[in-house]
């Protein structure tokens, strides 16, 4: 394989990253702008960040967002893990294809449709829209992502490890808690982080299912931007980018670390056998 830098490679990387990240970089830079005008550079300042702390509406929205993300990520991870276990462990049961289709459909479903259908459901059931409807909606769409992450870990999980636990006297539930769960824990944690991140930055589904008193940060930002972009919005966006980046990095680190550990384990076994 040729890994040398050629002009073509360098150019495509620079162009690709520029296309993806220059807007974000601009946003981050302008969040430190001293000027009140978003497009005019007036020197460095952190006053918009200080202003954030005094903006109760934004702080409230951030609080709602974090609470929604915490609860919905937890629900999504539990349901997603269960779905993944059913899909991988129960073998071929009646309706398996349908079930896996239903679990993974939200991955490709347009968010507008998901949001609208959830809204219709909540209205039909007579739920008051607010914190819980947003949370349930977020759990619904992020569950499939959690299921994908856990499923991929279960696929290369040696089933005989669970059989060994049962053979040694552990009933199925205890086998799951003492053997299966600790082994797939990294995947479960990264599934949770992914669901958490997805919930943090969702606008479409949240705006369909939210109600009074449960304005999430993305909704708040969106509604403020319609009145004009202020440097304050830049600042809060920068904070969100930081959160999401940390979440995604952590999730991918957990996945990578556990797969590296497994690799090392396999190599050790091979070395022992050779």
């Amino acid at each position: 394989m040729n890994t040398r830098f050629s002009w073509f490679n360098v150019t495509s990387i620079v162009l690709g990253f520029a296309f993806l990240y220059i807007p974000i970089l601009l946003l981050v830079i302008y969040s430190f702008n001293d000027s009140k005008l978003v497009t005019v550079w007036g020197g460095w300042s952190t006053k918009w960040y200080e202003g954030l702390l005094k903006n109760d509406a934004l702080i409230d929205a951030a609080g709602v967002t974090v609470r929604v993300a915490l609860v919905s990520a937890t629900i999504a991870t539990i349901l997603g893990t269960l779905a993944a276990i059913v899909l991988i462990r129960l073998g071929r049961f009646r309706g398996r294809t349908l079930f896996s289709g239903l679990v993974f459909a939200p991955l490709v479903m347009p968010e507008v449709i998901t949001g609208l259908s959830l809204l219709l459901l909540f209205v039909a059931l007579g739920f008051d829209r607010g914190f819980w409807t947003v949370t349930i909606a977020h759990a619904t769409f992020s569950m499939c992502f959690a299921a994908v992450v856990v499923q991929s870990r279960l696929l290369d999980f040696d089933k005989s490890v669970e059989e060994a636990a049962m053979d040694l006297g552990a009933p199925p539930l205890r086998t799951f808690m003492e053997v299966t769960l600790p082994i797939i824990a990294p995947a479960v944690i990264s599934a949770w982080l992914l669901a958490f991140t997805l919930s943090l930055d969702d606008l479409v589904i949240a705006s369909f299912t939210t109600g009074p008193g449960a304005t999430t940060l993305p909704i708040k930002i969106y509604s403020q931007v319609r009145l004009g972009v202020t440097p304050e919005i830049n600042a809060i966006s920068t904070v969100m980018i930081a959160f999401v980046t940390v979440g995604v990095l952590l999730a991918s680190y957990m996945t990578k670390r556990s797969s590296m550990l497994r690799e090392r384990e396999k190599r050790a076994v091979d070395a022992g056998a050779a």
């Binding site: 490890v161 059989e163 060994a164 049962m166 040694l168 009933p171 053997v179 082994i183």
Partner: peptide, 20 residues
């Protein structure tokens, strides 16, 4: 069920050790 068969224990081809 396997966990009720106290007279029998098995050693697996893959060893099936608990990695954690």
């Amino acid at each position: 069920a396997p966990y009720e068969r106290t007279d029998v224990n098995m050693m697996f081809q893959s060893y099936a050790l608990f990695p954690h």
